[in-house]
């Protein structure tokens, strides 16, 4: 493993007390005889924003599903704030590539899914965060792709998760909407201080958003790269492109 050390706390954020601290040790997952993840070790600080990149099929989604507790690990363990994860991870929310909204519910009722009390008011609050207050009563089927993802983001945030898992959430959006959403995710993350793990196939997106970018290859962590660039980071910031090149070379074996 190749680790580029972080010059302490260049990443512009106060120490967070809110996000989950993740300790991943020897995490291994095999489907039948097919090994997908082989002994992943990773330490993630509370409130950190990590991006995970790698070729398609390298096990990124599997990694996220393990963290969410949707699937049992074959070996190894995941600790959340020192507690080993068993079953579903109730402090985590996932935002999927497809928004996965329920078409038989209004926008607001989608956001309030699973809230046991005060759903409407909290739902309105979350919709306000993503700038969709005025669409609360609409059916989700009439929204655009970007709006659907914003609803999905509101739904993820409404439960005030300590850990937000993003599985290529912007992959299907057009370039302009994607920039807008990146900005929104970054702002909300800075305000709410959850730990964020973003899977993406877009290296530019990874270095733009994350404190740290992890490359998964052959079932292991091939590179763990700090991006010590202060925020707000503007697109095309020259310091970022250096990291981008480094990552691309690594992924593509150059």
């Amino acid at each position: 493993m190749n680790r580029v050390e972080s010059p302490t706390s260049l990443t512009s954020r106060p120490e967070s007390r809110y996000g989950t601290h993740l300790s991943i040790r020897n995490l291994t997952k095999t489907f039948g005889k097919k090994p997908v993840l082989q002994g992943i070790d990773l330490e993630i600080e509370p409130g950190e924003f990590i991006a995970v990149v790698g070729r398609s099929g390298c096990g990124k989604s599997t990694f996220l599903r393990l963290l969410a507790g949707l699937e049992p690990a074959t070996d190894g363990q995941i600790e959340l704030d020192g507690q080993p994860l068993k079953g579903l991870n109730r402090s985590a929310r996932i935002m999927f590539q497809d928004a996965r909204l329920l078409p038989w519910r209004s926008v607001l009722d989608n956001v309030a899914l699973g809230l046991r009390r005060d759903g409407q008011r909290r739902g309105q609050w979350a919709l306000q965060q993503v700038g969709l207050s005025d669409r609360a009563q609409d059916w989700t089927t009439i929204l655009s792709g970007g709006q659907r993802q914003r609803v999905a983001l509101a739904r993820a945030l409404v439960g005030q998760p300590q850990l937000l898992l993003l599985d290529e959430p912007l992959g299907a959006l057009d370039a302009l909407t994607r920039l807008e959403m990146q900005q929104l995710i970054q702002t909300l993350w800075q305000e709410q201080q959850f730990t964020a793990i973003l899977i993406t196939h877009d290296v530019e997106e990874a270095v733009h958003l994350a404190d740290r970018v992890v490359v998964i290859k052959d079932g292991g962590i091939d590179l763990d790269l700090w991006v010590p660039v202060s925020r707000p980071r503007s697109i095309g910031y020259p310091a970022l492109s250096e990291f981008k090149v480094k990552l691309l070379n690594r992924i593509l074996d150059r």
């Binding site: 969410a68 949707l70 579903l88 109730r90 985590a92 929310r93 996932i94 999927f96 497809d98 996965r100 329920l102 038989w104 899914l113 699973g114 739904r155 439960g159």
Partner: peptide, 27 residues
């Protein structure tokens, strides 16, 4: 099945999953 998986992640128990996702989806 993606909707059911989403429901699980968002904290729905089996009974909620049935009434809020499976039955409306089958209606």
């Amino acid at each position: 099945p993606h909707l059911v998986e989403m429901g699980k992640v968002y904290g729905l128990r089996s009974r909620d999953l049935f009434w809020q996702i499976i039955l409306p989806g089958a209606l």
